[in-house]
Simulated assay, not measured.
Amino acid sequence: MARVTVYDVAEKAGVSTATVSFAFRHPDKVKDDTKAKVLRVADELGYVPSGNARSLAKGRTGTLGMYAFDMLLEKPQGSGLEEDRSDVSSMPASMSDDDEPDVLTYPLYVDEVLRGFELECWKSGKGMLMGAALARDDHKSVTDIAGRVDGLALMPSGYNNRLPLAMLAKTVPLVMVGVSDENLPAAYLQCDNTSGMRQIVDHLVDVHHVDEMAFVGGFDSDDVVARYVAFRKCLEERGLDSSDALLDDSFATSDEYMVGLCEAIGSGRLPQALVCGTDQIAFGVIRLLEEAGVRVPDDVIVTGFDGILAGRLMEPQLTTVRQPMEDMGREAARMLLSRNGEPWEKAERRVLPVRLIVRGSCGCNQKNLSA
């Protein structure tokens, strides 16, 4: 079958080839209805703009891609380096402790997945390309990287549903990391959120005799949603009240961030335990509790989920569920390599096991329990 070209799309959509190009590379310069028509026709024809003008159907690059979206940070948060320091001459000769980055603000989830992906590429003798969206409708960056690789792994993001992934899935194998909606012919890779939440609830009930706990976490990812659903189910299975299972579902970027938790602290309505949707949410919760004079774990237990390194560097160390993030990166690369550049015909799912890591934030003695 002959490769679909920009000319085919332009002819069927009734626009110029320049308009087709702009719809992908500079969507902000194309009217919404025109852009929608171009993308619809491109999807129907199976057209993807190739970054190096090769045939995605026949060509091979020996390279895999990772698309990390908004989880990449140009400069570490909390480091004092957020301002522009491109002029090296303006950098201080030495940096004080106050200039050091705050390790709790790093996006360490994606860092570990990326490391596993890179290691598997290196082991297999494959190259690796990385890409990230600059805006919600940044079609150019994702189509450019897809045109240069034999397979593409995508980290979870709210940007996902704004990009032409249905079109890409027809021409290059995609692995969706941390995504549960199987609406594309692609591979879906997640950790076992249900098992992880059950391990947390069982530990709190059986070891700490907790009968009142609540969930904290904004539903900005499929993983957090799945963890909350599993949390409520686990409460019900243990005969506990789930009617007030959700204490705070605010987002970190929201003006209402942690308002629900603040109200619970102010009114003295804190449960015995706060089960957080991610480790990074737990870090923010513990900080807020400390500022309010609430002791962890003496006054309230806090748990996380993910098992990022930062949880071992705080005091108290965070009780959490460890998902095998490096293995997720490796598995994503292996799944792409197995396709040899050929897209999936239907959705395929793989779920990796998780394990509870018991530390000090739940009140356990770290000297007697494995960390």
Results as ranks from 00 to 15, higher is better:
residue 15 V to I: 09
residue 31 K to E: 13
residue 23 A to P: 10
residue 14 G to R: 12
residue 266 G to E: 15
residue 7 Y to D: 07
residue 4 V to T: 15
residue 143 T to W: 06
residue 137 D to W: 10
residue 240 L to Y: 01
residue 46 G to V: 06
residue 300 V to D: 04
residue 296 V to E: 09
residue 69 F to L: 13
residue 225 V to D: 14
residue 11 E to A: 14
residue 61 T to L: 10
residue 191 C to R: 06
residue 241 D to W: 05
residue 279 D to W: 01
residue 33 D to E: 14
residue 62 G to P: 09
residue 303 T to F: 08
residue 144 D to Y: 04
residue 242 S to K: 09
residue 336 L to F: 07
residue 131 G to Q: 13
residue 202 D to Y: 04
residue 166 A to I: 00
residue 56 L to C: 06
residue 267 S to I: 00
residue 93 A to W: 11
residue 89 S to I: 08
residue 153 A to T: 00
residue 108 L to Y: 07
residue 302 V to H: 08
residue 57 A to Q: 14
residue 149 V to T: 14
residue 266 G to Y: 00
residue 9 V to Q: 05
residue 195 S to M: 13
residue 146 A to N: 04
residue 209 H to R: 15
residue 307 G to W: 02
residue 59 G to L: 07
residue 197 M to F: 02
residue 273 A to C: 05
residue 296 V to L: 09
residue 305 F to I: 00
residue 301 I to M: 13
residue 140 K to A: 15
residue 304 G to T: 02
residue 240 L to P: 05
residue 151 G to V: 00
residue 282 A to E: 03
residue 290 E to I: 08
residue 331 E to H: 11
residue 310 A to E: 01
residue 5 T to E: 11
residue 120 E to P: 03
residue 173 P to G: 10
residue 29 K to G: 03
residue 111 D to Q: 14
residue 57 A to H: 07
residue 82 E to T: 11
residue 92 P to W: 04
residue 16 S to T: 12
residue 232 R to F: 02
residue 94 S to K: 11
residue 289 L to Q: 04
residue 118 E to N: 13
residue 110 V to R: 03
residue 117 F to Q: 11
residue 350 R to Y: 01
residue 80 G to I: 05
residue 307 G to L: 06
residue 180 S to V: 05
residue 53 A to I: 00
residue 247 L to C: 04
residue 366 Q to A: 13
residue 59 G to Y: 04
residue 140 K to L: 11
residue 170 K to T: 02
residue 232 R to G: 15
residue 97 D to R: 13
residue 20 V to E: 08
residue 128 M to F: 05
residue 239 G to L: 12
residue 21 S to E: 09
residue 148 R to N: 04
residue 326 E to P: 00
residue 99 D to C: 10
residue 131 G to Y: 07
residue 287 R to D: 13
residue 149 V to Q: 11
residue 62 G to H: 10
residue 192 D to C: 02
residue 206 D to E: 15
residue 341 G to C: 08
residue 119 L to G: 00
residue 70 D to L: 10
residue 341 G to T: 03
residue 143 T to H: 10
residue 77 Q to T: 12
residue 265 I to N: 07
residue 184 L to A: 09
residue 40 R to A: 13
residue 284 G to C: 08
residue 147 G to M: 12
residue 214 A to K: 15
residue 14 G to T: 06
residue 284 G to T: 00
residue 314 M to D: 02
residue 54 R to F: 07
residue 68 A to C: 14
residue 327 D to C: 08
residue 157 S to W: 06
residue 260 G to C: 12
residue 366 Q to C: 11
residue 139 H to V: 05
residue 154 L to P: 04
residue 8 D to A: 08
residue 331 E to R: 14
residue 331 E to V: 06
residue 150 D to S: 10
residue 211 D to Y: 03
residue 99 D to T: 02
residue 2 A to D: 12
residue 82 E to C: 07
residue 92 P to Y: 07
residue 16 S to W: 01
residue 179 V to H: 08
residue 36 A to L: 05
residue 197 M to C: 06
residue 102 D to L: 14
residue 128 M to D: 03
residue 184 L to D: 11
